[in-house]
């Protein structure tokens, strides 16, 4: 694994562009603040979970009062749907939030308390004020090519780690 540390986001992006479409191995950036762009998948998951949650919340109430244990409460109709809306809406919100959180953990494979990149000292600055680029490749040829490309871009630090 090759790890290059850069002084700013601009320099990091130049390095990413330089490595793009060179097929030298998975490239990952480590930055203290979010880069441009966002993934759509979790948004979709949250939306679907929210809608399903609302439907499930409403469905549970309708099932409970219509089929499972209908009972006369206040002379209201058994499936008193206006009263079921707040519960369904809150369940939808909760389902969306939970789906987002759990989905986030799943797509990022969190918690991952150990990653080979933690062996690097310069990685410590990735969450503070350094912009890092990591190329995970085991092939020494590719590793050498990556290092060549990166060295030309004057990183603050360049190191090689075991993957």
């Amino acid at each position: 694994m090759i790890l290059g540390s850069f002084a700013s986001e601009k320099e990091l992006m130049r390095a990413v562009d330089a490595l793009r479409s060179k097929e030298l191995g998975p490239v990952e950036t480590y930055t203290p603040s979010p880069p441009e762009g966002e993934h759509f998948i979790l948004k979709l998951v949250m939306l679907i979970a929210g809608l399903l949650g609302t439907a499930a919340g409403f469905g549970m109430q309708a099932y409970a009062t219509g089929i499972s244990y209908p009972i006369d409460i206040g002379g209201r109709p058994n499936v008193f749907w206006p009263a079921y809306i707040p519960f369904a809406v809150e369940t939808g919100f909760l389902a969306a939030m939970l789906a987002g959180f759990i989905g986030f953990l799943i797509v990022n494979c969190l918690p991952t308390l150990y990653d080979p990149i933690d062996e690097s000292d310069s990685f410590r600055r990735a969450s503070l004020d350094a912009w890092l680029l990591a190329v995970r490749t085991g092939d020494p040829d590719r590793a050498q090519r990556v290092m060549d490309i990166l060295r030309r871009l004057e990183p603050v630090r360049l190191e090689e780690l075991a993957s």
Binding site: E28, T29, Y30, T31, P32, P34, P35, G37, E38, H39, F40, I41, L42, K43, M46, L47, G50, F93, A96, M97, G100, F101, G103, F104, L105, V107, N108, L110, P111, T112, L113, Y114, D115, I117, F123, A126, S127
Partner: peptide, 29 residues
């Protein structure tokens, strides 16, 4: 802090997913 952070490392993937959900979460909250 390591356990609490769940291994968040600020990788591009993680950040982009983060941006993906944070706005929606704010939009739900």
């Amino acid at each position: 802090y390591g356990i609490a952070a769940l291994g968040f490392r600020g990788s591009g993937t993680q950040w982009r997913h983060f941006r993906g959900i944070y706005g929606v979460m704010a939009g739900i909250m």
